[in-house]
Protein backbone atom coordinates (compact mmCIF):
# COMPACT_ATOMS: atom_id res chain seq x y z
CA UNK A 1 0.00 0.00 0.00
CA UNK A 2 1.53 3.30 -1.07
CA UNK A 3 1.70 6.03 1.53
CA UNK A 4 2.67 9.69 1.53
CA UNK A 5 4.17 12.01 4.05
CA UNK A 6 2.13 15.21 3.87
CA UNK A 7 3.62 18.44 5.14
CA UNK A 8 2.98 22.15 5.40
CA UNK A 9 5.39 25.03 5.18
CA UNK A 10 3.99 28.52 5.17
CA UNK A 11 1.79 28.63 2.01
CA UNK A 12 3.10 25.35 0.61
CA UNK A 13 1.42 21.97 1.11
CA UNK A 14 3.57 19.16 -0.14
CA UNK A 15 3.69 15.38 -0.22
CA UNK A 16 6.51 12.89 -0.55
CA UNK A 17 6.27 9.20 -1.17
CA UNK A 18 7.05 7.46 2.10
CA UNK A 19 9.62 5.24 0.36
CA UNK A 20 11.73 8.34 -0.27
CA UNK A 21 11.64 9.60 3.32
CA UNK A 22 14.67 8.50 5.30
CA UNK A 23 13.65 10.09 8.57
CA UNK A 24 11.99 13.10 10.10
CA UNK A 25 13.92 15.01 12.73
CA UNK A 26 12.55 17.66 15.04
CA UNK A 27 14.35 20.86 15.98
CA UNK A 28 17.54 19.87 14.22
CA UNK A 29 20.32 22.44 14.51
CA UNK A 30 21.26 23.92 11.18
CA UNK A 31 24.55 25.48 10.15
CA UNK A 32 25.88 27.71 7.42
CA UNK A 33 28.75 26.84 5.11
CA UNK A 34 30.57 29.22 2.78
CA UNK A 35 29.07 29.80 -0.65
CA UNK A 36 25.96 27.73 -0.16
CA UNK A 37 23.78 27.79 -3.28
CA UNK A 38 21.05 30.43 -3.15
CA UNK A 39 18.32 27.83 -2.77
CA UNK A 40 20.07 26.00 0.06
CA UNK A 41 19.38 27.71 3.37
CA UNK A 42 21.75 25.69 5.56
CA UNK A 43 23.06 22.23 6.30
CA UNK A 44 22.27 19.90 9.15
CA UNK A 45 24.29 17.05 10.58
CA UNK A 46 22.70 13.63 10.58
CA UNK A 47 24.61 10.55 11.68
CA UNK A 48 27.92 12.24 10.92
CA UNK A 49 26.88 13.37 7.45
CA UNK A 50 26.14 16.88 6.18
CA UNK A 51 22.70 17.26 4.61
CA UNK A 52 21.73 20.33 2.54
CA UNK A 53 18.49 22.00 3.68
CA UNK A 54 16.51 23.30 0.71
CA UNK A 55 14.78 26.66 0.90
CA UNK A 56 11.26 25.51 0.06
CA UNK A 57 9.91 29.03 0.48
CA UNK A 58 11.14 29.55 -3.08
CA UNK A 59 8.65 26.98 -4.39
CA UNK A 60 5.67 29.05 -3.38
CA UNK A 61 7.26 32.39 -4.10
CA UNK A 62 7.26 33.14 -0.39
CA UNK A 63 10.14 34.62 1.56
CA UNK A 64 12.62 32.14 2.94
CA UNK A 65 11.26 30.40 6.01
CA UNK A 66 13.72 30.33 8.87
CA UNK A 67 11.37 30.64 11.83
CA UNK A 68 12.08 27.65 14.06
CA UNK A 69 8.41 27.16 14.89
CA UNK A 70 7.36 27.20 11.25
CA UNK A 71 9.96 24.64 10.26
CA UNK A 72 10.30 22.56 13.39
CA UNK A 73 10.62 19.39 11.33
CA UNK A 74 13.29 18.56 8.84
CA UNK A 75 12.21 15.82 6.45
CA UNK A 76 15.26 13.92 5.27
CA UNK A 77 14.62 12.58 1.80
CA UNK A 78 16.71 10.32 -0.41
CA UNK A 79 17.33 11.63 -3.90
CA UNK A 80 19.39 9.90 -6.55
CA UNK A 81 22.17 12.36 -5.76
CA UNK A 82 22.19 12.13 -1.99
CA UNK A 83 20.08 13.05 0.99
CA UNK A 84 18.38 16.43 1.17
CA UNK A 85 16.38 17.99 3.99
CA UNK A 86 13.07 19.75 3.53
CA UNK A 87 11.72 21.98 6.30
CA UNK A 88 8.16 21.48 7.48
CA UNK A 89 5.80 22.67 10.17
CA UNK A 90 4.81 20.39 13.02
CA UNK A 91 1.47 19.36 11.56
CA UNK A 92 2.72 16.70 9.15
CA UNK A 93 1.17 13.27 8.80
CA UNK A 94 1.57 9.93 7.07
CA UNK A 95 -1.42 9.08 4.92
CA UNK A 96 -2.25 6.03 2.81
CA UNK A 97 -2.82 6.79 -0.84
CA UNK A 98 -6.25 5.15 -0.58
CA UNK A 99 -7.35 7.80 1.95
CA UNK A 100 -7.13 10.48 -0.70
CA UNK A 101 -7.09 10.82 -4.47
CA UNK A 102 -4.44 11.58 -7.02
CA UNK A 103 -5.16 14.49 -9.28
CA UNK A 104 -5.66 13.63 -12.92
CA UNK A 105 -5.26 17.24 -13.96
CA UNK A 106 -2.10 18.01 -15.90
CA UNK A 107 -2.90 21.68 -16.30
CA UNK A 108 -0.35 24.26 -15.18
CA UNK A 109 1.80 21.62 -13.57
CA UNK A 110 5.23 22.87 -12.66
CA UNK A 111 8.37 20.87 -13.32
CA UNK A 112 9.00 20.19 -9.66
CA UNK A 113 5.53 18.73 -9.12
CA UNK A 114 5.00 15.07 -10.05
CA UNK A 115 1.31 15.09 -9.25
CA UNK A 116 -1.10 16.26 -6.59
CA UNK A 117 -2.46 14.20 -3.73
CA UNK A 118 -5.81 15.47 -2.56
CA UNK A 119 -6.57 14.69 1.06
CA UNK A 120 -9.32 16.27 3.15
CA UNK A 121 -9.84 18.88 0.44
CA UNK A 122 -6.24 20.02 0.50
CA UNK A 123 -4.13 19.60 -2.63
CA UNK A 124 -0.67 18.42 -1.62
CA UNK A 125 1.98 18.82 -4.31
CA UNK A 126 3.93 15.58 -4.73
CA UNK A 127 7.50 16.79 -5.06
CA UNK A 128 9.91 15.58 -7.72
CA UNK A 129 12.78 15.07 -5.32
CA UNK A 130 15.48 14.35 -7.91
CA UNK A 131 14.54 17.45 -9.88
CA UNK A 132 14.58 19.69 -6.81
CA UNK A 133 17.84 18.20 -5.51
CA UNK A 134 19.68 19.14 -8.68
CA UNK A 135 17.93 22.40 -9.53
CA UNK A 136 18.17 23.88 -6.04
CA UNK A 137 21.71 22.81 -5.18
CA UNK A 138 23.40 23.52 -8.49
CA UNK A 139 22.22 27.13 -8.72
CA UNK A 140 19.82 26.37 -11.58
CA UNK A 141 16.84 27.52 -9.55
CA UNK A 142 15.72 30.90 -10.80
CA UNK A 143 13.01 31.57 -8.22
CA UNK A 144 10.39 31.14 -10.89
CA UNK A 145 7.14 29.41 -10.07
CA UNK A 146 7.09 27.55 -13.36
CA UNK A 147 10.29 25.93 -14.55
CA UNK A 148 8.55 23.98 -17.27
CA UNK A 149 11.34 24.75 -19.70
CA UNK A 150 13.99 23.37 -17.42
CA UNK A 151 15.83 20.10 -17.75
CA UNK A 152 14.32 16.85 -16.62
CA UNK A 153 16.50 14.36 -14.80
Amino acid sequence: MKRYGIFHLNQLEYAISLTQIRKIVQNARTFLLPRLPRAVSAVLVDEGQLVPVLDLGLLSGQPSVTDEELCAYQVLVESEYGTIALPAALNGAIVAETKGTLSDSTESKMSWIMNEFIYQNVRYKILDINFLAIEMTQNFWRNQLDTSGARRH
Partner: peptide, 26 residues
Amino acid sequence: PCDIPFLLKVSAMGYYSQVFLLNNEP
Protein backbone atom coordinates in the same frame (compact mmCIF):
# COMPACT_ATOMS: atom_id res chain seq x y z
CA PRO B 1 36.29 14.00 9.13
CA CYS B 2 33.08 14.62 7.24
CA ASP B 3 32.49 14.35 3.49
CA ILE B 4 31.19 17.36 1.61
CA PRO B 5 27.86 16.16 0.16
CA PHE B 6 27.91 15.42 -3.56
CA LEU B 7 25.22 18.06 -4.09
CA LEU B 8 27.43 20.76 -2.51
CA LYS B 9 30.75 19.84 -4.12
CA VAL B 10 30.40 22.36 -6.95
CA SER B 11 29.52 25.25 -4.65
CA ALA B 12 32.43 24.36 -2.37
CA MET B 13 34.96 24.13 -5.17
CA GLY B 14 37.65 26.77 -4.85
CA TYR B 15 36.47 27.86 -1.40
CA TYR B 16 36.95 24.90 0.91
CA SER B 17 37.75 21.23 0.54
CA GLN B 18 37.59 19.74 4.03
CA VAL B 19 35.03 19.75 6.80
CA PHE B 20 35.32 18.17 10.23
CA LEU B 21 32.74 17.60 12.92
CA LEU B 22 33.38 18.67 16.48
CA ASN B 23 30.58 18.07 18.97
CA ASN B 24 28.36 17.28 15.98
CA GLU B 25 28.92 20.73 14.46
CA PRO B 26 30.63 21.27 11.10
